[in-house]
Simulated scan of single mutants.
Amino acid sequence: MARQGVIKSNLTNDIAYKSFMPSFLPLEEGIKFDEKLIQSLVNARTEIAKLEVLTSRIPNVNLFIAMYVRKEALLSSQIEGTQTTLEDILDPMVLENTNSDVKEVISYIQACEYGVKRLNELPLCNRLIKEVHMELMKNSRGQERNPGEFRHSQNWIGSLGSTLNTAKYIPPNPSDMTLAMGNLENYIHEESGIDVLIRVALIHYQFETIHPFLDGNGRVGRLLIILMLMDCRILTQPVLYISYFLKKNRTEYYDRMMEVREKGKYEQWIHFFLEAVYESAKDAIDTIDKLDCLHKKIELQIQSMGRLSKNALEVFKYLETNPIIEIQKTSKALGLTYNTVSNIVNEFCRLGILNKVRNISRNRIFIFDEYVTILKKDTEKIV
């Protein structure tokens, strides 16, 4: 058998097709470590350790997590072709004016939050993966394609309009898929001397190769990365997301996985994955530092607001999880009068903290520009 797996023949005559069955994990031959791969692992491990220390020390880490999950949801969905912006997701009227692309991102946010919470009650397993998929597919395109269930029919990967005969890649047939997901679940749970990051790289590749759902495999596969890191106690908070790197290197991302399927080049894939972890951890550290500095700067500005300062701090806290606001909704959320919030918003505008976006009757929309600018990095629409 080839290192990467085997091509299987299915059915006969006019409906015959071939599918790929990946080798089970752990690999019989193991991973071949050279100096380059070892250095990549050291770099990724070092940066993750720095991130873990940083998130354990800053007082407002939960605010960062809430916003970073939204950014990750947007980027992961953009990899699949979703066309929306961070401003769309943060729009205070999003639930009233949502479209199908925005719904997909919101569903991803809910799936991520669900998965992280569920890890407190259930180990990472096929049951949890199915539950996360169920959450992901709620109220989004593909919700009719068996959410929360492994597929019972053949799927394939290819350009729009492709068939089993023209597809770029055909995952395991339903019977082989069931066996492969059983093996993957066992591998997730078994003790191993291999570093966790290497294991996560292999698990992500294996999941994407098995493609157990009819839709949403890419997004679930990227969610598995953070869930695995938390399940293995490498991270205590969901603060590492690699979709920003994968979006920038989308072609190489897919090509590296195909190189494993076709030629068994696991080491090249692992090196790419470790680079993604390293760059993503650096990005998270940089973002946390910038948001923390911004937080401290604005707290000092608020102290100069006299009698408004107490309520202004409450509005500011709200801004850090809702950086685009509408006065009426903000006043209801905080239990403050419309006039109080309006006065604070006007003062924030004077200080340059907020800027007006549009003015439609009383529905005035304001944006926390500096905050959104920091988070917007790498979230531009894919052309």
Rank of each mutant, 00 (worst) to 15 (best):
residue 2 A to E: 07
residue 3 R to K: 13
residue 4 Q to A: 14
residue 5 G to M: 03
residue 9 S to N: 13
residue 14 D to C: 10
residue 17 Y to N: 04
residue 21 M to Y: 15
residue 25 L to D: 04
residue 26 P to Q: 09
residue 28 E to K: 14
residue 30 G to L: 06
residue 32 K to I: 08
residue 39 Q to A: 07
residue 46 T to F: 14
residue 51 L to S: 05
residue 53 V to T: 10
residue 55 T to I: 10
residue 55 T to L: 11
residue 57 R to N: 12
residue 58 I to P: 12
residue 58 I to K: 13
residue 59 P to F: 15
residue 67 M to K: 03
residue 72 E to Y: 00
residue 75 L to M: 09
residue 81 G to C: 04
residue 81 G to E: 02
residue 84 T to C: 07
residue 87 E to Y: 06
residue 100 S to N: 03
residue 102 V to D: 00
residue 106 I to L: 15
residue 107 S to M: 06
residue 111 A to V: 01
residue 113 E to Q: 15
residue 116 V to M: 11
residue 122 L to W: 10
residue 123 P to R: 12
residue 127 R to W: 09
residue 133 H to Y: 03
residue 133 H to F: 10
residue 138 K to C: 09
residue 141 R to W: 06
residue 149 E to K: 15
residue 159 S to H: 08
residue 160 L to T: 08
residue 175 S to R: 15
residue 181 M to A: 11
residue 185 E to L: 03
residue 189 H to D: 02
residue 191 E to H: 10
residue 193 G to H: 08
residue 208 E to S: 10
residue 211 H to S: 07
residue 214 L to N: 05
residue 216 G to R: 01
residue 226 I to N: 12
residue 227 L to R: 12
residue 229 L to P: 09
residue 230 M to R: 08
residue 233 R to A: 11
residue 235 L to P: 11
residue 240 L to I: 11
residue 242 I to V: 14
residue 250 R to W: 03
residue 262 E to V: 03
residue 264 G to W: 11
residue 266 Y to S: 07
residue 268 Q to A: 13
residue 271 H to S: 13
residue 273 F to I: 07
residue 281 A to V: 06
residue 281 A to R: 10
residue 284 A to Q: 05
residue 285 I to C: 11
residue 287 T to A: 02
residue 288 I to N: 01
residue 293 C to G: 03
residue 304 S to L: 15
residue 307 R to D: 10
residue 318 Y to H: 15
residue 320 E to C: 15
residue 320 E to Y: 14
residue 321 T to K: 15
residue 325 I to K: 05
residue 326 E to T: 04
residue 330 T to V: 08
residue 341 V to A: 02
residue 344 I to D: 00
residue 345 V to P: 10
residue 354 L to T: 02
residue 355 N to E: 14
residue 361 S to D: 08
residue 362 R to M: 05
residue 365 I to G: 07
residue 367 I to S: 05
residue 368 F to K: 00
residue 369 D to F: 00
residue 370 E to K: 01
residue 370 E to I: 00
residue 373 T to R: 15
residue 375 L to V: 09
residue 378 D to A: 12
residue 380 E to S: 04
